[in-house]
Amino acid sequence: MMTTQTTGRTLDRPALPEPVRLPRRRHRRRSAQRVARWQIYVPLGLYLLFTLVPFYWMLVFAVRPRGSDSLLPWPITLENFDTVWNGLGFGIFFQNSLMVGVASLIATTVIALSGGYALARYNFRGRQLFMIAMLCTQFIPGAMMLIPLFEIFRTLGLVNTLWSLVIAETVFQLPLSLILISGFIRNIPMELEEAAWVDGCSRLRGFFAVVLPMLRPALVAVGSFAFIHSWNNFLFALMFVSEQEKFTVPVGLAYTLGEFSVDFGALAAGGVVAALPVVLVFAVIQRYLVQGMSAGAVKG
């Protein structure tokens, strides 16, 4: 049945050149057409509704005037944003989150890049042990580290500084980043590097000239992971920082939530402020993300 259907469709197509000349292409078209359109669009549409209604709800509550009942984002007012940005201090929280996010992005990427290269290209004593240890760290509950990390940061005088967050974020991001980057480097043929050495490059120059450019999807994936995770982290920021000028966006948002009578307009506007950077970063990198994943650790 399937075959007749497909053949029928193929014959309907006026522009198709003699099929004999393009056998592979015809097959590919056929397999692409096997799923009927509605079988894609109906479930996809339903799922999009589930995904987007919550975002839409937040947007509407953020921009509509006080006392309005409308579910349409019109007329637009920015008073809620003014309240959260200036009144509740989200302007400062935003800066803090941004600094922590960028610092842990840079630290994670650089450390994981150098370590990942060692893991991928050298066989050294302790390598296996390190690999196993990295896998084990994935089972450590973040909540479990609160007590001892707090004690460490207190000893180092880092409590109530953003550095405590940068360190904690970076360390928690490192294992996954190392696994991803070393998996990616292993997939780059050694011959390319060797060719660079033959041409007189040092190992370091060879790395920058040959390996680094090919690592772009992996670096984008690792860097954006680090940024998004640190932007989103709540528990560390809640525990290690108690001065309001050092709060990050999620902590500020949690305080807005914790008020006895929640100001829903402000909550929604704070939510938009919290969502915007990560959703934008995500929109730009999501194509690389799937690429980076499939070439990295998961495929094996």
Binding site: Y47, T51, N232, L253, A254, T256, L267, G271
Partner: peptide, 19 residues
């Protein structure tokens, strides 16, 4: 679009769903 909630934090998810 369908992947985008992946980037959203737990606290923000709470904020949205409380609404």
């Amino acid at each position: 679009l369908v992947f985008s909630p992946w980037a959203v934090s737990g606290v923000l998810t709470t904020g949205i769903w409380v609404l």
